[in-house]
Design a protein around this nucleic acid. Structure first.
Length: 663
DNA sequence: CTTTCAGACCTTTTT
DNA sequence: GGTCTGAAAG
């Protein structure tokens, strides 16, 4: 994160032992940052505005702890993505030495997974738990929904997606289904009984088959800590210093986990910004950050308000956006980075103007020497960039897209993963289902029978080869052969994936006659990803918990990242910064999202706009078309987003695009 | 039972 | 544009 470069004086004694050189914390940090770094014992809450050096503070604090003699393995750094943790530890290591790499870190989910695998026993879990991603849990729910006959009710019963959302929300908000439906899903009140029944069935299903969804990881981890004092004390003593980044986006379950983990020492530093809370759809509540001092009495609160990232002109806009927020910690960011250029509110005739403007401006910036990797185009929803993507391709501007539908979620990749999963956890009926339905002549019924045979005999190979259905014998034999080959040697993930692909190739051609070459290429990249792992267990866990955030096709980098423009959802842009930021579709009907308008979640949308605009260091452009296509009404007039429409034109300058008619 | 095909539906954000 | 669902044919 940004910092005054002129103050960057790292003094490193030449070739001396690591412990003999010292970091000059006072020279490196401002007063508030320094206080946060120097406060080592006891609970600390850092309220860090956007671009105020939050990451820098965490990095220096890790270094400070290690330098002060704390064993790195006693430090736990919980972040929003593992990439964020890795990046911080890399920076801390460059301040000190390799020791910082031994700091434990990752997301709540990945850390929970790690601990649960070590302490599976007390909560009745096996070591080979399969992690269900969102799609997997929806599949299970759908199965049970049909099995329980819930879908045959006269009144419309919610679809699997909605059900999964509701179940997840209940867990993440730590409230029971009944009150959740009452408060947030009132229109489903008549189904409460059925939903509860379904939820119970879902839980049983997962437990008996060694399956855990994302929420289970947190719940089971919490239960382990809460109900097993010995484990709790052991863990609490092992992780003596806990730091939690992006605390505004944690939910009550995660807060509870932190509370329990710190039970023997209270050494927790939570860092966050209530104005940047954008994950309430996942049960996060920015009030969590307000409650921190209550669960940790004696908390020292430190506010970081000096912004090192953006010019004053950019800050004037972001301050104006957030000033209208209904409920927040009042703070106004300031900088001494100089005035900078006034951000523009750019309007054009239609979406095409918007795309052309962005492309043209990007090409100009590149001429001026701004690397493509220092430019980002941000948007509320992943599909908002479709039009621009076409235009970028036309101009030959390389880009990566982050967020939205992911590579890992495509059917063919999930198929490949399913084969690895059944091998590791033969009880994983979700994956069995996927694997078996690929065979010609196998539908849901036959698949069920086969799975029952596999579970009953406990021996997949025998169950498959002995299955009394001559028409399927050849295919089942082939599958059994594959499983045998995979099981024989404890394969390296890469060679496992290669074996699977050999088996899967003909199936792929049959199911996707038109585009199997494209899918085949995806699968080859998947194999390449597998090659980075030592064992299949960590490979699978990572694919479920920290999949690459790139969209389909982007996993292949033909060009180095520095030479590619970034397209990203605002959610995926969290914590990052660029020289120039474009915000697409700053128009009513797109941003705020119509869903949020209907549900009265406007305040979170405002924070999203705040997060988007605070990513810019030098240049900021908000664009919107004057007409846009609406599915119901066809072409309609668009208005600028309510979050920016009323900003003083001196602060956010309106510009209209015109096309040069000269030849 | 499985496959196929047409029409409905619905599209936010993510671990 | 893609998935999901239901109905009818193989």
């Amino acid at each position: 994160m940004g910092a005054p470069p002129e103050k960057y004086v790292l003094r490193r004694a030449p070739a001396a032992a690591a412990s003999s050189w010292r970091i000059d914390y006072r020279a490196e940090l401002n007063e508030a940052q320094h206080r946060a770094v120097a406060t080592v014992e006891g609970p600390v809450l850092v309220i860090a505005g956007a671009g105020t050096g939050k990451t820098r503070t965490l990095v220096f604090r890790v270094a400070r702890l290690v330098e002060g003699g704390v064993d790195p393995a006693q430090i736990l750094l919980l972040t929003f993505t593992r990439k964020a943790a890795a990046e911080m530890l890399r920076r801390a290591s460059s301040l000190l030495d390799g020791r910082c790499e031994r700091v434990a870190g990752g997301t709540f989910h990945s850390f929970a997974n790690l601990i649960l695998r070590r302490h599976a026993h007390p909560i009745g879990l096996g070591a080979a738990v399969s992690i269900l991603d969102r799609g997997d849990s929806e599949d299970v729910i759908n199965l049970l929904r049909a099995e329980g006959g819930f879908d045959r009710k006269e009144r419309r019963f919610p679809r699997k997606q909605k059900i999964a959302e509701i179940f997840g929300m209940a867990v993440n908000k730590s409230i029971d289904l009944e009150s959740l439906v009452e408060s947030l899903y009132g229109h489903l009140a008549e189904h409460v009984g059925d939903l509860m029944e379904l939820q119970a069935a879902y839980t049983t299903y997962k437990r008996t088959r060694q399956l855990a969804d994302y929420d289970d990881l947190l719940v089971l981890f919490r239960d382990l800590l809460r109900d097993h004092a010995a484990v709790r004390d052991e863990l609490s003593r092992r992780y003596r210093y806990i730091m939690v980044d992006e605390y505004q986006d944690t939910n009550s379950l995660q807060a509870e986990i932190v509370r329990l983990l710190a039970s023997t020492h209270d050494n927790v530093m939570a860092v966050g910004d209530d104005a940047q809370s954008i994950y309430s759809f996942r049960g996060a509540d920015f009030r969590n950050i307000m409650d921190f001092p209550r669960s940790f009495p004696g908390t020292r609160v430190i506010a970081l308000e000096e912004n090192y990232r953006s010019t004053q002109a950019v800050l004037d806009v972001t301050n104006a956006i957030i000033a209208a927020a209904r409920e927040r910690h009042a703070k106004t960011l300031f900088t001494d980075r100089g005035p900078g250029q006034v951000p523009l509110l750019v309007s054009g005739e239609n979406e095409h103007y918007q795309s052309r403007f962005v492309c043209q401006r990007i090409l100009e910036l590149r001429e001026e020497g701004v690397p493509l990797g220092e430019i980002a185009v941000l948007f509320r929803s992943s599909f908002h960039s479709f039009g621009l993507e076409v235009e970028l391709n036309r101009h030959g501007i390389p880009f990566v897209k982050r967020g939205g539908f992911k590579f890992i979620e495509t059917a063919h990749i999930k198929d490949a993963i399913a084969h690895v999963r059944v091998l590791l956890n033969p009880l994983d009926s979700v994956s069995w289902h996927r694997v078996l339905l690929l065979l010609e002549g196998v539908g849901p019924r036959t698949s069920e029978e086969l799975i029952r045979a596999v579970v009953d005999t406990g021996d997949p190979v025998t169950a498959l080869t002995q299955f009394p259905r001559p028409g399927l014998a050849t295919d089942l034999r082939a599958l059994a052969n594959l499983l045998e080959t995979l099981a024989e040697a404890r394969h390296h993930p890469e060679s496992m994936v290669e074996q699977i692909l050999e088996y899967y190739e003909p199936i792929l051609k049959r199911i996707h006659p038109d585009d199997h070459p494209k899918r085949r290429r995806d699968l080859d990249h998947f194999a390449a990803m597998a090659s980075r792992y030592e064992n299949p267990e960590t490979f699978l866990a990572d694919m479920a918990l920290e999949p690459p955030n790139e969209s389909v096709g982007d996993v292949v980098a033909e060009v180095e990242d520095e030479e590619r423009l970034i397209l990203s959802t605002i959610h995926s842009a969290k914590g990052l910064e660029w020289h120039t930021v474009f915000v697409l579709w700053a128009a009513e009907g797109r941003f705020p999202s119509p869903y949020s308008v209907a549900d009265d979640d406007i305040e979170e949308e405002r924070r999203l706009m705040y997060v988007a605009t605070t990513r810019a260091k030098e240049l900021l452009y908000l664009t919107y078309p004057i007409t846009m296509f609406d599915r119901q009404n066809g072409i309609v007039l668009a208005r600028p987003s309510r979050f920016v429409a009323d900003i003083d034109p001196e602060i956010l300058r309106p510009i209209a695009l015109v096309i040069d008619m000269e030849p």
